[in-house]
């Protein structure tokens, strides 16, 4: 090996779980992740998506050294999560939304002190970093409360600060916004965008909340049944899936539909007495052509272009 490879590299990653219901019963094998390959470059903000049980958590757990893969190779910042776990996690920030990594009975302040010792953060760097995180996440009034007394939103802000105290270049987030209200979500998103852009932190985000992905991620990695089904930017995803674009049209008067056949790839469905949702494939027919066609049906009073929702796109993909 020459230079350490920055970022995340997974090649043919697989994980098979073997379970026995009883000691001597034949083993039951379930494949959680199968032949998964991807690369994430430093500074990227990647959304890691898939339905429940698709293998997202299993993959993340292999990337951070919790699970040992049954096949394939993985390196993070050039290190093997399994063989060099301790060295690697020193440079990782990890937040699991459903599990706390802070010290339950201690005030946030003391959790931070423990993390400082654990990650051997130099005193001066620690002071600067802590001040910045306390400021960005508005933690000052919470520092002296035991973690168990914090609300979910407060705790999640604490978890993020704790995961970033040692200035890791890579951050793994597993459903960090689960159960949070809109206001907290939006402030967390703002924070994540900031540390991604200003500090250049590479972020891999798992979430079921498509608005998280829509607002934050430059790239999406979608898996299902442990296999990769898509890897790329959002626009490419829409093109790949071929989700129709849609326009909502209102006519002055009920249109004359008898004897009219819509052009290919155009579908029209009534949403009111004289309003219709018209779906079409932009690759095949332009919006202008669609409107031209619609004008033959009557005078158009109003129209609104509908962006396909990411939820819809992802649904198509599964």
């Amino acid at each position: 090996m020459s230079q350490p490879v920055p970022g995340i590299r997974a090649e043919g990653l697989s994980k098979e779980f073997v379970r026995r219901s009883r000691w001597f019963s034949p083993p039951q094998r379930t494949v959680a992740v199968e032949n998964l390959s991807f690369r994430i470059e430093p500074g990227e903000f990647v959304g890691f998506l898939g339905p429940n049980g698709a293998g997202k958590s299993t993959t993340i757990k292999m990337l951070v050294g919790i699970l040992h893969p049954t096949g394939g190779r993985v390196t993070v910042n050039g290190l093997s999560p399994q063989r060099e776990r301790i060295e690697l996690v020193r440079s990782l920030g990890i937040v699991f939304g459903q599990r706390s990594q802070l010290w339950w009975d201690l005030p946030l302040r003391e959790s931070f002190e423990i993390l400082r010792a654990l990650y051997r953060i130099p005193a001066s760097a620690y002071r600067v970093r802590r001040a910045r995180l306390v400021d960005l996440l508005e933690l000052a009034p919470l520092l002296d409360q035991p973690v168990r007394q914090l609300s979910l939103g407060q705790r999640m802000r604490g978890e993020l600060a704790g995961a970033l105290l040692h200035s890791p270049p890579v951050l793994f987030l597993d459903e960090p916004t689960i159960g949070l209200d809109i206001a907290v979500k939006s402030s967390l998103r703002h924070f994540l965008r900031q540390i991604n852009r200003e500090d250049g932190v590479t972020i891999l985000l798992t979430t079921h909340d498509m608005s998280d992905v829509e607002q934050l991620c430059s790239r999406m990695l979608v898996i299902n049944h442990g296999r990769k089904v898509f890897d790329g930017a959002r626009a490419e995803l829409e093109a790949a899936v071929g989700v129709p674009h849609a326009v909502e049209v209102s006519f002055e008067n009920p249109p004359r539909l008898e004897g009219w056949t819509p052009p290919p790839t155009v579908a029209m469905q009534a949403t009111g007495t004289d309003t219709f949702l018209v779906e079409f494939n932009r690759e095949r027919i332009s919006l202008a052509q669609v409107l031209e066609e619609l004008r033959t049906l009557g005078t158009i009073r109003d129209l609104a272009l509908k962006e396909p929702s990411l939820d819809r796109v992802i649904e198509e993909l599964y």
């Binding site: 951070v64 776990r85 996690v89 990782l92 654990l118």
Partner: peptide, 8 residues
């Protein structure tokens, strides 16, 4: 899980 993500 929480044990394994610590550098110790």
């Amino acid at each position: 899980d929480a044990i394994l993500i610590r550098p110790a």
